[in-house]
Nucleic acid binder design. Sequence first.
DNA 1: CAGCGGAGTTTCATTCGACGGGAGTGCCCG
DNA 2: CGGGCACTCCCGTCGAATGAAACTCCGCTG
Lengths: 246, 246
Amino acid sequence: MLARAVRIFEAFSPGETTLSVSEISRRAGLHISTTSRLVAELTGHGLLSRGPGRTVQIGLRLWELGLRASPTLTLRQVALPFLKDLTHLVGHHAQLSVLEGMDILFLERLSAPGAVVNLSRVAGRMPATATAPGVLLLAHADPERQEEALAGPLPTYTRRTIGDPDRLRSALAEARRNGFVTSPGWVEHVACGLAVPVREADGSPVAALSVIVPNDDRVFGFLPALRAVAMEIGLVLRRAHAEPDT
Amino acid sequence: MLARAVRIFEAFSPGETTLSVSEISRRAGLHISTTSRLVAELTGHGLLSRGPGRTVQIGLRLWELGLRASPTLTLRQVALPFLKDLTHLVGHHAQLSVLEGMDILFLERLSAPGAVVNLSRVAGRMPATATAPGVLLLAHADPERQEEALAGPLPTYTRRTIGDPDRLRSALAEARRNGFVTSPGWVEHVACGLAVPVREADGSPVAALSVIVPNDDRVFGFLPALRAVAMEIGLVLRRAHAEPDT
DNA sequence: CAGCGGAGTTTCATTCGACGGGAGTGCCCG
DNA sequence: CGGGCACTCCCGTCGAATGAAACTCCGCTG
């Protein structure tokens, strides 16, 4: 069954890339014989692969399929050089992310040496309401999704993370008004995020461009540059959309 | 069934990232009602997603799962800054690839503006025997895999691509002797590949580092730099392997 | 060295869910 | 307006997934 296979994949987390069969069966809540059989089958398709000893890891084929045809690829490809420049400019982290359910999903993240702490990872998730790009994208999402966020739990990292619905509501309104979001100390006391939207041809935000910098009063100084880069990425994106490939 | 789901994923190619349900059913050779049901189910899991109109595309979740825990991620992450430098140095393309079956699979590819033509893509495949990194990695693979390559068909791009087993055999031997492979005009007449191995702690090559440059007599001039970079990637890789994460 | 226990795979009867024919729905185009 | 197409839904049949249990292969321990 398909759902079981997905459960198996989800047993792997960014921290633990290799697991044993019994470990998988425990995490996925599957019978061990089922797990064994499914792992064998998935391995046959290259979606999983066996490492040294009895370990199992995600297979190259899954990576290949996921990357090959995803609409994400274009976005990432287009944004990469801009992110590079941005990283140099701010001297810390630059990241590109999209909204997935109630989480923010990081498509790409570049860091300069000696940058402030940053919990995000490429292909990693964080609760949308706890991050600058998350609040920004949520502010432009369907009203129903916003309601869901307001109704749901609001996980916090520090005392400054948005913890109650009222504060979230005003943060969303402010995000729409300003066109950007800052997250001073939301995740780490010493760090501050700054996020702006990357817009498609129709004006709807498809992704967030953000930087993580030290949490001091120089944060807003990066805003103009960030906006300019986001605008440019949008431009190139629309051009790439019009005439695919190269 | 699982095999069917994989067939569906494989219906998507790098060129065509969005398909209709009937198109998928045709390519995957599945009954349309089966396809419809499976697509719906896969969409539910986020492995596929529906675009505008009735189009279907690869879902973000597949990308996420594939990227999140793959051993590839470390390799790519480590190599990325080195590839960037290399791209600047040679002024054309730099790529990182691994051997998958009889194909070479490109993990990362960076290009300088105005570079020579290059058919490769990130997450794309090419026949191993037709490329420099492919022949290099094949030369260090199990003997049985080499035999399979020698026995199998040898697809060619130009008249200079390796087309017969004898030439392949001597190319493999030469690759082992030299520790590098050049591919003058194998894929495009005007371009030449140059590939060296990236080695693990035990000395076995895990990937190939290669550049694509114009097909003239300056090709060998890049060899020392390429070797130095490959060595350094291997070094960092071993360190990252010893103490995971950061 | 025998005996234990945990991990993994294989076997097999049961049953559950996938399959695909066919009907139904909405859409485009003549 | 009516035929054709793309897609989804429904449902009886049947095949394939499931999980208990048996079996194998370790490494440990008394």
